[in-house]
């Protein structure tokens, strides 16, 4: 049994001394150490890395993947997957900007964007959880359909924000007290909320149970389909929020926004120790996975290493991380 992977799944009821011992068996520690090593390395290698400006910049970048990653993490823990989040994150920009242009109201725009995300989540969740179609196929399908619909609607052109609303600019680029960017704030709030949910709410535990062993979950009286359905909706809503922030940073609804985003996010989630088989992993791990990939990308950029290396190293790190987990599991 993957003790090292037990994470928050076993973190619940523990005495303090055991908690400490368990902590060191967990792979969050390895991830955390990797992150620290990465930061130390890049700050030694480049003067401009460890500056407030750069760090806030990285955190801002990481926030978008973090928000979407929380959703994907929740869904993968429940034993399903969603690869349509990139298309969705791109697509929500359209109702956002179009409604804003029409009504002049950012709030209505955001409501429209979230409504779209909700609809996508409901459709994905209905087809996958209730009808029982493999979630990879369902979301591969919606990935095509959403992106195609965006192209169809926009004619493959970006839709500009005509009103240049300051508030629209602020949500993606502004800072609270000039220090912490709003996207980072959103990410931190959502992360805390969902970590709390996954550890301390019965529903969070149901997500683990349903992903870990659906049959046992059913015997324990859980409505497995409903739990998975809700996970799909959560995942889409968070992808939608991520898309709203993205759209604000881009300053318009860009038809190609979020291309390939799903792969980045899935990669970070897996790197963070969430098992694709379901039932294993923690959102804290997901957050670390996102941060590692973001700092790596940024650091390599700082060292003037071609940005393409980021993709290469990311790919290699994912293979190494998953293979390492598997080896540890087999060693036991």
């Amino acid at each position: 049994m993957p003790q090292s992977l037990s994470l928050s799944a076993a973190a619940g009821p523990k005495r303090p001394s055991e908690w400490l011992r368990a902590l060191f068996r967990r792979n969050e520690i390895a991830l955390l150490l990797s992150l620290v090593a990465l930061i130390v390395f890049f700050s030694l290698a480049s003067d401009s890395f460890l500056t407030t400006r750069n760090i806030t910049n990285v955190l801002g970048q990481a926030s978008l993947a973090m928000v979407a990653g929380i959703g994907v993490g929740v869904l993968v823990i429940s034993g399903e997957i969603d690869v349509s989040i990139g298309s969705l994150a791109g697509a929500v920009g359209i109702p956002l900007v179009v409604i804003m242009n029409m009504t002049g109201s950012l709030e209505l725009g955001i409501a429209g964007a979230l409504l779209l995300a909700l609809c996508v989540g409901v459709v994905n969740g209905f087809l996958a959880a209730y009808i029982g179609i493999n979630s990879l196929i369902v979301t591969l399908g919606s990935m095509f359909v959403i992106r195609g619909a965006v192209y169809l609607y926009t004619g493959q052109k970006a839709i500009p924000d005509d009103l240049m609303l300051e508030s629209f600019y602020q949500i993606g680029n502004g800072r609270l007290f000039g220090a912490i960017s709003y996207p980072a704030l959103v990410a931190i709030v959502l992360l805390s909320a969902f970590i709390y949910l996954m550890r301390h709410r019965p529903f969070g535990r149901k997500l683990y149970a349903v992903g870990g062993n659906p049959e046992v979950a059913r015997l324990a009286g859980y409505d497995v389909k409903r739990v998975k359905f809700i996970a799909f909706v959560i995942c889409s809503l968070l992808a939608g929020i991520s898309g709203i922030l993205l759209s604000s940073r881009l300053g318009s609804a860009v038809h190609v926004a979020g291309l390939g985003f799903e792969f980045q996010v899935v990669a970070a989630v897996v790197l963070g120790g969430v098992s694709l088989a379901g039932g294993i992993g923690s959102l804290f791990g997901v957050a670390l996975g996102v941060l590692i990939l973001s700092f790596l990308a940024n650091g390599l950029g700082m060292l003037n290493i071609a940005t393409e290396w980021q993709l290469v190293t990311t790919g290699l790190i994912i293979i190494a991380a998953v293979a390492f987990d598997e080896l540890k599991r087999r060693a036991k």
Binding site: F263, V266, A267, E308, W309, Q310, L311, V312, T314, G315, L316, I318, I319
Partner: peptide, 10 residues
């Protein structure tokens, strides 16, 4: 997916 990233960068 990882190989895809490696190749796209590579």
């Amino acid at each position: 997916i990882a190989t895809m990233m490696i190749l796209q960068g590579g």
